[in-house]
């Protein structure tokens, strides 16, 4: 294993909670590597093990098995080194509610023996948006502003690796877009970013993603690569009565599975299905039928991987 090239290296990581009878395996021997300057997405639902993974990587939890390095340092032996080199934005807002915006930022800068002034260029883009409120207590900020302050605090010591645990959960579509634009600009500064999310659509904004479920990695690839791995044909369909259409699709013998997918339903078909036969079958009872081939989406891939 060559740690020089990798910002993060995880080899057979196991994390277990509880004892004897009541054991929960949060991470069941996962392995992956993240290159310098990469945006690496950990995509998975609540309970997949995303937070446990982040806590091990940021040296806040000890692993129960496997070997993990960050920036070339071991998370168990060299935890002090790692803490100086990483930035961490936990899922839950963890700044001091009774300190002002500026006091919080100064506090974090001081802990890392630096100053706001010294690294201002790195956070300017983000911090300038909340700077007009620098005398407001952090507890009084709106959700979006708290998020920007937390990101500024995580960056103030110029970390080489940034860990963002579900930064966009509960955040609306507009703010989510803006947040990802900020991440792209940080990437340009050669900061490695590990970001977790439960929004499948954010996967496409990462360089590579790991799809995780119940403490296991289902697949690691580029977003395009994950889609290319999906070989089964998918049909998109809509009609006047969507519920009826869904039942018909699921009842069809050559359908593997059909499910709502926004405006259309997606039907994953068996290899030997015939498009015209499907159309004729559906036309019997579905008015205003529209049926076409669809390109799989990350969400299709994730659902397929979840089943197997």
């Amino acid at each position: 294993m060559d740690n020089e090239k990798h910002s993060v290296s995880v080899d057979n990581l196991v994390k277990v909670y509880g004892q004897k009878k009541d054991v929960v395996k949060a991470l069941q021997g996962i392995s992956f590597e993240v290159s310098k300057g990469e945006i690496f997405g950990i995509i998975g639902p609540d309970g997949a093990g995303k937070t446990s993974l982040f806590r091990v990587l940021t040296t806040l939890l000890l692993p129960d098995g496997g070997r993990v390095t960050v920036d070339g340092f071991d998370v168990v032996k060299d935890y002090k080194e790692i803490r100086n080199r990483v930035g961490y934005m936990p899922g839950r807002f963890s700044l001091y509610q009774d300190l002002t915006v500026e006091e919080n930022l100064t506090f974090f800068a001081t802990i890392f023996k630096t100053s706001i002034h010294e690294n201002y260029d790195l956070i300017k883009d983000i911090y300038s948006q909340i700077e007009p409120f620098k005398d407001r207590r952090a507890g009084k900020l709106s959700g979006g502003m708290k998020q920007k302050l937390a990101l500024s605090c995580a960056l103030i010591h110029r970390p080489s690796v940034l860990f963002l645990d579900e930064p966009t959960t509960g955040v609306d579509a507009v703010s989510r877009k803006e947040f990802w634009e900020m991440l792209k600009r940080l990437k340009a500064q050669n900061i490695t970013i590990l970001v977790s999310t439960s929004y499948m659509d954010e996967a496409s904004l990462c360089d590579r993603v790991a799809l995780v479920q119940s403490g296991n990695i289902l697949s690691i690839n580029t977003p395009r690569g994950i889609i290319n791995e999906f070989k089964k044909p998918i049909m998109a369909a809509r009609a006047a009565n969507m519920l009826h259409l869904l039942n018909d699709l699921n009842a069809y013998e050559k359908t593997e599975e059909a499910y709502p997918f926004g405006e259309y339903h997606h039907a994953v078909m068996k290899e030997n299905f015939n498009e015209e036969a499907l159309r004729n079958y559906l036309l019997r009872e579905n008015e205003k039928l529209e049926l076409k081939r669809a390109e799989p989406d990350i969400e299709d891939c994730f659902m397929d991987l979840m089943k197997n």
């Binding site: 639902p45 609540d46 439960s198 499948m200 479920q213």
Partner: peptide, 20 residues
Amino acid sequence: DEPTGGVDPVTRREFWNMIY
């Protein structure tokens, strides 16, 4: 109020089935 936040895509669809 945001009943499906953070829920996996399969369960999210099962949830909507219950809504229907």
